[in-house]
Design a binder for these strands. Structure first.
Lengths: 217, 217
DNA sequence: CATTATTGTGACCGGTGGTCATAAAGTCAA
DNA sequence: TTGACTTTATGACCACCGGTCACAATAATG
């Protein structure tokens, strides 16, 4: 039982090699043009072999995207749960941000797989797997905001509403920064600004109109 | 000069018909699978004709995306410039939101064309055209925030920083809402939440940590 | 070693975006 | 009306892609 029969271990290894080969080719800027045949060549296997390991090219993308998601999850798990809510929130964002920074290839594939156009043509099994991981990723933030509401740091609004804003801003920022529209400010500063923005959006979510004591400026 | 020679007018008309035909087919959920041959059939022209009007299939996507952008621009221009900053900001967001709501097809194509993977394979000419429109779209928000800073409504931070948060949140929200992850709340409520969130993020951008007087809740 | 089960392979297929020689249609001077 | 000439329309054709499958190679079993 602990022995997946030696042969199947080697089989699994081949699968990894194929994913690795794909990732190497995806470093190129024209990564969307990489063909299955090229992946096969890079992995030193026949093209048919690829389809013994993955049902489709999209499945390769999906597996890489899930690898990326699991990296985020792993990065979340090392955050000290004793820290105050705001600090944990900060570290949470920083963790996700860093993972996105850590591998341009995985980041790109992840974004590619996040489009609903991609998901709609994914097999139900793989789609379910992805959604499950995504739920795991969302949970820490979910709990964090709930805790913040309990402690009176965030306004007592429905969780869904608070999450919506925070998620939107983070998600949008990731895409904006990596799309290269804005090249001047560096990444770390972006994260700091984003954190400020999101925390302000959460904390002052119910009182945006009464201006703070700045009208004198 | 005012007469583009009758013939060329009909030629331009054909181009429009092709775009219209494409848009009809893009209503389908599997719109990414629509082929050039199908568009030709829908437009009642030969496939080769399509390539007399558009350099590539991507060019068709791009033209539709730009149509969408021009709709946003038109919607912006009817906002009363006399209104106070915050109200104009609200209407600005509402305008963009409504355009996104108004046509699922155009919205989808627009998102598709926003991916950097798409832009990188676009012809420099068309890309430049798109960027120009995007700059026009961004300008009202840019000016609005600058005005808000002048009036002391928003903190005196660099425009780029304030814009970054606002843009991120809006962009992310659009994608989140339309991806169908969250199905319960209706669109109008989403917009209201988002507006609150963004305004709070802007107004309180520099003082997120000193908690407001709510710790009693 | 023979038998069986599993994994690897590349020739092959349907279909796609894109091209191009040719046909059709329009324009205009005489 | 005609005929020379320019612009627009067309579908057969091409290269290439993702995906399949009959068969070869290899490993496990007895």
């Amino acid at each position: 039982m602990t022995t997946p029969s030696r042969k199947s271990r080697q089989f699994a290894l081949r699968g990894q090699e194929i994913l690795d080969a794909a990732l190497v080719l995806f470093q190129s800027d024209s990564w969307e043009d990489v063909t299955v045949a090229e992946i096969a060549q890079q992995a030193e296997v026949g093209k048919g072999t690829i389809y013994k390991h993955f049902a489709s090219k999209d499945e390769i993308y999906a597996q890489l995207a899930m690898l990326f998601q699991r990296q985020i999850l792993a990065r979340f798990s090392i955050i000290d749960p004793q820290l105050p809510v705001i600090e944990r929130f900060r570290q949470n964002m920083c963790a996700a941000w860093e993972v996105h920074l850590s591998s341009k290839e995985l980041h790109r594939v992840f974004l590619y797989c996040s489009r609903s156009g991609f998901r709609s043509r994914l097999s139900p099994a793989t789609l379910g797997e992805m959604l499950a991981i995504e739920q795991q990723i969302a949970q820490p933030t979910h709990l964090l905001i709930a805790e913040g509401v309990e402690q009176g740091i965030f306004p007592p609004k429905p969780l869904a509403k608070l999450l919506f804003g925070a998620q939107s801003a983070f998600w949008g920022a990731i895409q904006l920064v990596w799309s290269g529209y804005l090249g001047d400010i560096d990444q770390a500063e972006h994260l700091d600004d984003l954190t400020r923005f999101i925390l302000a959006g959460l904390i002052y979510h119910d009182q945006p109109i009464d201006l703070p004591g700045r009208a004198s400026a």
